[in-house]
Write a protein that binds this DNA or RNA. Sequence first.
DNA 1: CACCAGGGTGGTT
DNA 2: AACCACCATGGT
Length: 212
Amino acid sequence: MIAFRKLYEQLHNSYGPQHWWPADDRFEVMLGAILVQRTTWPNVEAAIALLRQQDLLVAERLAQSSLEVLEQCVRGTGFYRAKARRIQLLAGFVAESGGVSALAELPTSDLREQLLAQEGVGPETADAILLYMFDRPVVVIDTYLRRFSARLLGREVPPSDRVLNALVSEEIHETADLNEFHALVVAHGKSTCGARPQCGSCVVRVACASAA
DNA sequence: CACCAGGGTGGTT
DNA sequence: AACCACCATGGT
């Protein structure tokens, strides 16, 4: 009934505050959201550091820099040709939209639609940007949450993303809580416990028992 | 050496 | 709508 609220509380008790999103400014959040796809955060940090070294953490400059330089900066994050192209296109989008502050004026639904129209920005990346860059109260659904949602809900088949979004939205409303919730889900997923489908004593099972 | 990492895209059934 | 191959480097 209140499965995800219980999960949130258990995760928070186990792992504590996560202090997401690690970034110096809002544009950097956007770049990280693309660069972190299917890789680990340390790789992203290294790439961001290289971009900063080239003074490219500004939308206008990033949009006009050479693609070859970008590829060298982000190489360590994997899929580097696609990612270099995508952060450059994204920088152009931000610049032509009037900057981050102008985008921040848009309603969440419009902003989400525009983000999804960008190459390399799918549902998860768009929602992560909405939550961590623009402080909008949205649910970020990642592979970790999908992985144990069926067990948490006591169902055989895992719920669709649409259903999952509705269920979490009912139980967690505040931007600050949605922020922390997703960070904690990832923190747990990265732990040795979260990586296994069947874990006897992890917080997901504890939350499951508490919610029943 | 095999497998995975904070997805997304384009094509096929 | 569900499935697939592909993108590609870095760490266990």
